[in-house]
Design a protein around this nucleic acid. Structure first.
Lengths: 213, 213
DNA sequence: AACGAAAAGTGCGTGCACGCAACTTTGCGT
DNA sequence: ACGCAAAGTTGCGTGCACGCACTTTTCGTT
């Protein structure tokens, strides 16, 4: 046994996953989300309805996945790729902002749809939780701390702050008195700022720890 | 109009809610969670199945609620009740630990059941999210900061750290090599510790701000 | 090349969540 | 005391999530 997760299998699996989420988004855009049934998505993707449910556990999840696909892995990779001289707080913030910054906006209409419907909005906000585990690994790597809860707590907090920013960004900008939400990168920086002291403190402790042993 | 949320209505509502969660827990304990249908819970509580679903959106939620009822409000109240001289980080940590520390363990068997079944375990861990909004209000109160995202981000982070602690505590203590999880208060303090710098820094900023205006 | 185990896909059946549209209860204003 | 508006309850119908058992596909091994 060499590498479990070998080629053709995983490849087809990813193809099916992509076909499903693309079909879900396309149908949601053309007919409106509430007029798309699971069977339609499955049929459009060429699989059985039961198989659809092996990949996504809700219609909203499938639709939103077309926009947020693989973001969790990219965030973790982005953190790992940051220069070692950079502080942990900056590294995390920049990595997240980069991944949520819009690259040309292929999905402009999709995002409009998502922010419009509450159910999709919720599903979209919840995707922030997916970065938690990969991010915890990346932070643990940076801190050289693989056996305490600190990386997990920090990653969970970062994910939580990201959720706050996403919810604000996607929320109907309460018309009357309140300001209309700024750009997503600005919101993310603002939401993540309060966590910087915690991230930096963890880094300090990690340094001291590695120096003393 | 004085106090919306007047007496008899809300009273009955709470009574129904309590009847439902008590019934759910009792039936789950006697017959096992997977042998309890929604209709059974509703019937035992004396309401229609449809009404059950107006209160809880899953069987697991109802069962777990019997143990975690009103915890969110109590956490917020506990934070508010802490002496003003105390640092924010200490206030929050002590408030949470106090609310999750077991008062006599009425629910010992219930907790055993919850930690045993994965579905119940997940629902239990998720209840930590409920403290987010009330805690945000309490923190905003303490900081005198009602218009920035900081309280919401801090509250969300605290909730996230709490989730980490709960998950660890309720997790099957992977038999073999890994240590068995410590007491819940200890776990909570450990999980919340990395956030102390962020909480204290926010408090510092709040003080400076109020001094300069 | 053939075989056997593991993994992915499928069909079926069951219980459930939730929108909707009555209907009943509560409580405030007069 | 009365009546109306708001809040809560209920039954119905629809689509869905998911466990289970079975078929098909993939892939390492001999």
């Amino acid at each position: 046994m060499t590498t479990r997760r070998t080629g053709l299998r995983e490849q087809k699996k990813q193809a099916t996953r992509e076909a499903l989420r693309e079909a879900a988004l396309r149908l949601a855009l053309t007919h409106g989300p509430e007029n798309v049934r699971v069977d339609d998505i499955a049929e459009a993707a060429g699989v059985s309805p039961r198989t659809y449910n092996n990949y996504f556990s809700s219609r909203e999840q499938a639709i939103v996945a077309a926009v947020t696909a693989e973001r969790e892995a990219r965030v973790a990779a982005a953190v790992a790729a940051r220069p070692v001289g950079e502080g942990l707080a900056d590294a995390v913030v920049e990595a997240i902002v980069a991944q949520y910054t819009d690259p040309g906006e292929h999905h402009r209409d999709a995002l409009l749809l998502i922010t419009t419907r509450p159910a999709l909005r919720d599903a979209f906000v919840d995707t922030a939780g997916a970065i938690e585990d990969p991010l915890a690994d990346a932070i643990a790597q940076r801190l050289g701390d693989t056996d305490s809860y600190t990386p997990r707590v920090l990653a969970a907090s970062v994910a939580a702050a990201t959720r706050v920013a996403l919810r604000q960004w996607a929320s109907p900008m309460t018309s009357g008195l309140v300001v209309l939400s700024g750009s997503l990168p600005d919101l993310l920086r603002t939401a993540l700022a309060p966590l910087a002291p915690a991230l930096d403190a963890a880094e300090q402790r990690a340094r001291q720890h590695s120096r003393s042993e």
